[in-house]
């Protein structure tokens, strides 16, 4: 465990909790893509199946349980508790266009052709693109609430920090997982345009709105 990995995990945790608190406090999930959140729940579910088979550390297990719990709570709030505020009309990205190709790729390109391993690979690939419905929704409506942009920034930062962690681990431990690294690069690249807007607009006190 190095500092980049730890801050990456914490940034991920901040993002997830920030989103949950925002929905809870405002009693609304307006501007949030339910499809992205369902995909994140699917990502955690398929990746953390090893919670029962492979014990790593108390830290690891606790974080997995928190990520899973928060992710399911978020989906519950969007589709059940605060369903009336869900902006389904603008959440029009076709999730099957991501899930099906990613599933196929996980079958073809993996470390080992076993059910758990294919599901783990699926989760890595799916995570890399799961934010697309959310970004698409912002492009469609042309704006995002500031708190939503903080959520997105923390979520994007997490994988960027993991990239530095992997460089670190390659040098100091001779460790590298090509599947995770390539998917992590794709994931981080998808946030670049958003990072630019966040730094130039939101950090200067302006709301994130796109030109019409």
């Amino acid at each position: 465990m190095n500092v980049f990995r730890l801050t990456g995990d914490l940034s991920h945790l901040v993002a997830i909790i920030l989103l949950l608190l925002k929905i809870w406090k405002t009693r609304s999930c307006a501007g949030i893509s339910g499809k992205s959140q369902v995909m994140f729940a699917l990502v955690f579910t398929t990746r953390y199946l090893d919670l029962f088979t492979n014990f790593i550390s108390p830290y690891n297990s606790v974080m997995k349980v928190i990520y899973l719990g928060c992710s399911y709570a978020t989906v519950y709030m969007i589709y059940m508790k605060f369903k009336a505020s869900y902006d389904g009309n603008h959440d029009t990205f076709r999730a099957e266009f991501l899930i099906i190709p990613v599933g196929g790729l996980a079958f073809l390109v993996n470390h080992e052709f076993t059910p758990l391993e294919i599901l783990w690979t699926f989760s890595i690939y799916l995570e890399s693109v799961a934010i697309l419905p959310q970004l698409f929704m912002i492009t469609k409506t042309g704006e995002a609430e500031t708190i939503t942009t903080h959520y997105l920034f923390a979520l994007g930062l997490y994988r960027a920090l993991y990239l530095i962690n992997w460089i670190w681990r390659y040098y100091f431990e001779g460790f590298f997982d090509l599947i995770a690294i390539v998917a992590g690069c794709v994931q981080t690249i998808l946030y670049c345009d958003f990072f630019y807007l966040y730094i130039t607009k939101v950090l200067h006190g302006k709301k994130l709105s796109l030109p019409a």
């Binding site: 990995r5 790593i56 997995k64 470390h111 783990w120 993991y162």
Partner: peptide, 10 residues
Amino acid sequence: KNKNKAKDEL
């Protein structure tokens, strides 16, 4: 155990 797998990560 395969060293080149990110299974100890989140």
